[in-house]
Write a protein that binds this DNA or RNA. Structure first.
Length: 585
RNA sequence: GCCCCGGUAGCUCAGCUGGAUAGAGCGUCCCCCUCCUAAGGGGAAGGUCACACGUUCGAAUCGUGUCCGGGGCGCCA
């Protein structure tokens, strides 16, 4: 409908150019917006004010000319000029009433568009280290990333969802060492646990499985393990200590033995994460292994490319990337003095690979604590001759849980953190998905557990779902009372929808495609969440003000037809956010 | 010290990329089922859009500076 207005204005502007009223040359993008006030019509356009200066005319005068040049439309009842030069469009009731069949004919596809033009977009999100279960912080990235991906798909992009598995780094070695030490405990050894080890319950579980699988095969006396190791914190350095433990594990277990421990840890945790996300309604096209980059010599190649293009230098025995040439605040290490490549080097190779795979846009969803990382990745892409503007990094701020008005404490290493699974168990998938995307991503999220659990109007999830269930309930009543209804006939009675509540609903329904498109292009699922609440509010108001299952056939047909469209849009919108639309509550 | 995010009603937040008289929800107060689910609805009160300049027809929105809050700045990942 909005597009219809734009399509009316553009040719009119061209006509004015031909008539010499407007200077020739590029015309501004025609902006048409929904009005806030009914008195200003349904849509308003500000183009006359924008063109007043270059045309050297008064805005209102220009608006008059423009209105005169508009082609007639059966959707537009009248056009007015108001205020400093706004052109206000009043639509006919029929134009809005036509939304109902439009919704129901499109069904699940209502709200989909083609602005994405089939462009290939990659969305990488969560990508948490497989060193432990997902916690509530990852949950926000999961819900947000999944919603952004689904919105982009609805907007006509070809979306590739990807999880980057950090299966190669030092953190994984720390996990492997932690598992092995817990295993040694099961073998009866008195093990002093490293300050920097992973302490969660899941480490015991994996160690137990390791013991079941391997028996005593990996058992070494604790004295041999600890022999000549540097002191752990607090006397010594916990990082140095854990590295020494890892080195000792590799030496005592040998290549194969160490690999067995490492892979059991990796596989256990990764399959846990996959299951967790799947249950959360988050699906991926690809799980991309960091190790595969090394295996395919991608990291080597990336470093080589930076070397040959003279973007690197050696200092203190390490190889540095001159990222400060491209806006980073300082240079970064690619290869450490011990010969190992850094995580950053892998990440360069990974992003290089992403662009080589031919994505026209690459979206990374990261925790806000990684923001300092953005300039160096973009610097690397630029140094490699790629276009860094193809990469959008969306930074998601932290979620803070509240229970009974009190902050819920979280700490990663101690194992006391609240996992995503616990959260889902406590408030349910629907509430979790919705609450996570209720705020825009750069806003800190106060997640109120009590509210998410409450079954009342205060809880936006229940409020919206209830609107859907209410429509379903009306349809059940319709059948029970043996009242007639069919969509084809209902079409003939659309003009019976004249009440102000019905008008409001029709306007809201017609806005839905615009909301989906804006939410997709701006990566802002919260816009959709807010819209759905408003739509549900319009519906509940209507429900209280008018009876749907009335005696008069024409009116009943029209009203039932309308609420079926409402049900469809709610289901579509909730679906994009990963929230179910129940038929009964 | 540098960087990122935020500052809008008592609280939690929107504000459609610069538009017309700044909006929701919660909380407070008042009211509404003989009726399709009261898990609902209606109404009232509540504002120096942190502050100051600047940009222009027009600023909560853009720019600069200041103040306040949160987070980040490893040859960790």
């Amino acid at each position: 409908m909005k597009q219809h207005i734009v399509d009316l204005i553009r040719p009119a502007l061209e006509r004015l150019q031909q008539a010499g009223t407007l200077p020739s040359g590029d015309l501004p993008v025609v902006q048409v917006e929904r009005t806030r006030d009914k008195a200003h019509g349904d849509f308003a356009c500000n183009v006359a004010m924008l063109l007043a200066k270059p045309a050297r005319r008064k805005p209102r005068e220009l608006a008059e000319q423009l209105v005169g040049a508009l082609a007639p439309s059966d959707q537009v009842a009248r056009v007015e000029i108001a205020g400093p030069g706004f052109i206000n469009f009043f639509m006919t009731p029929a134009a809005f009433q036509a939304v109902v069949p439009a919704v129901l004919e499109a069904g699940e596809a209502y709200g989909h568009s083609t602005v994405g033009d089939g462009k290939r977009v990659q969305v990488e999100f969560v990508s948490a280290n497989p060193t432990g279960p997902l916690h509530v912080g990852h949950g926000r990235g999961a819900a947000y990333g999944a919603a952004v991906a689904d919105l982009l798909a609805a907007a006509g992009f070809q979306v590739h969802r990807e999880y980057y598995v950090n299966d190669a780094g030092r953190q994984m070695d720390i996990l492997a060492a932690s598992v092995w030490l817990r295993y040694l405990e099961l073998c009866g050894e008195p093990v002093p646990f490293p300050a920097n080890g992973y302490r969660g319950q899941y480490v015991f579980d994996i160690a137990q499985n390791l013991y079941t699988e391997q028996g005593e095969a990996l058992h070494h006396a604790i004295a041999n393990v600890l022999e000549d190791l540097p002191p752990d914190a607090p006397e010594g350095d916990k990082e140095t200590y854990i590295d020494a433990v890892i080195g000792r594990a590799k030496k005592l277990l040998g290549e194969a033995g160490y690999r067995a421990v490492f892979d059991l840890g990796l596989d256990s945790i990764l399959s846990d994460i996959r299951q967790d996300l799947e249950e959360f309604g988050v699906a991926y096209e690809e799980w991309f292994s960091e190790r595969s980059l090394t295996a395919k010599r991608k990291v080597e190649r990336a470093i080589e490319r930076l070397k040959t293009s003279k973007h690197t230098y050696e200092k203190d025995g390490a190889l540095w990337f001159r990222s400060s040439d491209y806006g980073d605040e300082k240079d970064r290490v690619l290869v450490r003095d011990n010969g190992q490549t850094t995580y950053f080097a892998s990440d360069i190779a990974y992003h290089m690979d992403k662009l080589e795979r031919g994505f026209e846009r690459v979206i990374d969803v990261w925790g806000a604590d990684h923001h300092g990382y953005v300039p160096r990745v973009k610097a690397a892409l630029q140094a490699l001759g790629d276009d860094p503007s193809k990469l959008d990094v969306l930074l998601v701020q932290f979620a803070i849980l509240y229970r009974g008005g009190e902050k819920v404490q979280m700490s990663t290493r101690s194992g006391e953190f609240v996992t995503l699974r616990e959260l889902r168990g406590e408030v349910g998938n629907d509430a979790a998905r919705f609450f996570y995307v209720m705020r825009k991503c750069e806003q800190h999220l106060d997640f109120d557990l009590d509210l998410a659990k409450s079954e009342s109007a205060d809880n936006p999830v229940y409020y919206i779902q209830y609107a859907h269930a209410r429509v379903c309930s009306v349809m059940r009543q319709l059948a029970e009372k043996g009242l007639d209804f069919d969509e084809q006939t209902a079409r003939l009675y659309l003009d019976r929808l004249t009440e102000s509540h019905e008008q409001d609903l029709l306007v809201s329904l017609s806005r839905y495609p615009e909301v989906v498109e804006a939410a997709a292009l701006n990566h802002e699922p919260h816009q959709l969440a807010h819209y759905l609440r408003e739509l549900a509010n319009d519906f509940h108001t209507y429900y209280n003000a008018h009876q749907f299952l009335v005696e008069a056939d024409d009116l009943r047909y029209a009203r039932v037809y309308l609420i079926l469209a409402v049900r469809q849009v709610i289901a579509n919108g909730l679906g994009l956010l990963g929230v179910s639309a129940p038929e009964t509550m």
